[in-house]
Amino acid sequence: MRTILLTLTLIQAMLFAHAQDSTFTNPLLPSGADPYSFYKDGYYYYTHTTANSVVLWKTRSLTDLQSAQRTTIYKPTENNAWSKDVWAPQVQFLRGKWYAYFAATGGKNAQHRMYVLENPSPDPMTGTWTFKGQVTDATNKWAIDADIFEYKKELYMIWSGWEGDVDKQQDIYIAKMKNPWTISSERVRLSVPEHEWEKSGQKVTVNEGPQALFHGKKLMIVYSASGCWTDHYALGLLRFSGKGSLLDSAQWTKHPEPLFKTSVANKVWAPGHNSFFKSPDGKEDWILYHANSQPGWGCGGKRSPRMQRFTFTKDGIPVFGEPVAEGVRLKKPSE
């Protein structure tokens, strides 16, 4: 009898270990705002805001970030226009080279602009990262949160910017690029905070963190709305008609309701500033985002990266559901 009990205990332990190995829980790291990942040759290259540098993680699975290889690929020198407040870096492989985009200032928020680094090495964890300079349109206005994507063999940049020079409203802009570090067209404004769920934040209203999302031939932009300092930070959606030019704002439609927002029941507040990735086998769609574990935590260092699988409606609208509670075991992305 004792032998049987020991065998059953061993089996239970093995089953528990297998379940632990095939599942994960959120958050992925104790902290890390504005998470982003890029998948290439079997590895995910992950970044998030560190405020003073661009740090890159390399891993087979984003669920293993805590033990993943990491390196600082860039730390700006002091006393220049991009020395401080390094926000929302993204490392992407474009046109045969690696590029790292980030927003930074010389010390004042009004100075925020977008900058880019380049690395020709096949592995972005090695080789030399060269500072290519500022990425801007002719207006050279305040700009953060750039995402670069390709549509019909043309490169485009989307970002959050100011219409003027005063911090009162952040809008979503798009422009065409002639190469990964040069904008070649005028900027076009695609979205302004107009619905009540986009305007929480007192004097400053916010549309930021735009990310391109493709589903078949459909192109969408998912963005974050309302101030990150509020518990009402949420995700909105812009859809391209598929006709005409991406630079024609009339071809873009805004979804009237947020697609992802605070879940008091699950104790997840202010989910947003997301990015997207596919499972290693390419069959599953996943959203990577940050959120707070308590109300009122705002934009500080307590925001943590999380991920969960999502699907699409028959009309191609992403269905993110509710942000999953911490500690809930989720099945890892399919391999």
Score class of each variant (00 low, 15 high):
residue 311 T to H: 09
residue 314 K to M: 09
residue 226 S to C: 11
residue 287 I to T: 03
residue 102 F to Y: 15
residue 227 G to T: 07
residue 214 F to R: 06
residue 154 E to Q: 15
residue 24 F to P: 00
residue 40 K to W: 11
residue 308 Q to C: 06
residue 182 T to F: 08
residue 266 N to F: 09
residue 21 D to E: 13
residue 244 G to R: 02
residue 268 V to W: 04
residue 249 S to F: 08
residue 239 R to Y: 03
residue 100 A to K: 04
residue 211 Q to Y: 05
residue 105 T to P: 01
residue 25 T to C: 12
residue 18 H to R: 14
residue 27 P to T: 09
residue 73 I to L: 08
residue 256 P to I: 08
residue 287 I to L: 09
residue 1 M to F: 08
residue 124 P to Q: 05
residue 320 F to V: 12
residue 174 I to S: 06
residue 205 T to Y: 05
residue 167 D to W: 13
residue 35 P to V: 10
residue 179 N to R: 01
residue 69 Q to Y: 12
residue 138 A to G: 13
residue 73 I to G: 05
residue 178 K to C: 02
residue 138 A to N: 15
residue 283 K to I: 03
residue 26 N to W: 11
residue 87 W to A: 03
residue 50 T to G: 01
residue 212 A to L: 06
residue 15 L to H: 12
residue 198 E to P: 00
residue 1 M to G: 06
residue 136 T to V: 15
residue 155 L to S: 00
residue 118 E to M: 08
residue 90 Q to F: 04
residue 282 G to R: 10
residue 21 D to R: 15
residue 311 T to P: 00
residue 227 G to A: 15
residue 188 V to M: 09
residue 114 M to D: 10
residue 69 Q to G: 02
residue 214 F to S: 04
residue 92 Q to F: 04
residue 34 D to P: 00
residue 254 K to T: 06
residue 308 Q to M: 07
residue 125 M to P: 00
residue 278 K to H: 12
residue 136 T to G: 11
residue 205 T to A: 11
residue 81 A to T: 11
residue 104 A to I: 02
residue 128 T to R: 13
residue 171 D to E: 13
residue 196 E to R: 13
residue 206 V to H: 11
residue 284 E to W: 14
residue 208 E to R: 10
residue 150 E to C: 05
residue 59 T to A: 10
residue 2 R to G: 12
residue 289 Y to C: 06
residue 135 V to K: 07
residue 83 S to N: 05
residue 104 A to V: 09
residue 328 V to A: 04
residue 254 K to S: 07
residue 260 F to D: 02
residue 162 W to V: 13
residue 184 S to K: 08
residue 167 D to C: 03
residue 93 F to V: 01
residue 295 P to D: 08
residue 300 G to Q: 04
residue 335 E to C: 01
residue 279 S to W: 11
residue 273 H to S: 10
residue 58 K to P: 00
residue 187 R to P: 00
residue 5 L to C: 08
residue 133 G to A: 07
residue 276 F to V: 12
residue 333 P to L: 03
residue 23 T to H: 15
residue 33 A to K: 05
residue 141 K to F: 13
residue 275 S to C: 06
residue 310 F to N: 07
residue 272 G to F: 09
residue 45 Y to A: 00
residue 304 S to N: 12
residue 147 D to F: 10
residue 247 L to Y: 08
residue 210 P to Y: 09
residue 77 T to P: 01
residue 183 I to W: 03
residue 235 L to I: 12
residue 143 A to D: 02
residue 21 D to A: 15
residue 211 Q to F: 09
residue 7 T to V: 15
residue 200 S to H: 13
residue 161 G to A: 13
residue 84 K to S: 13
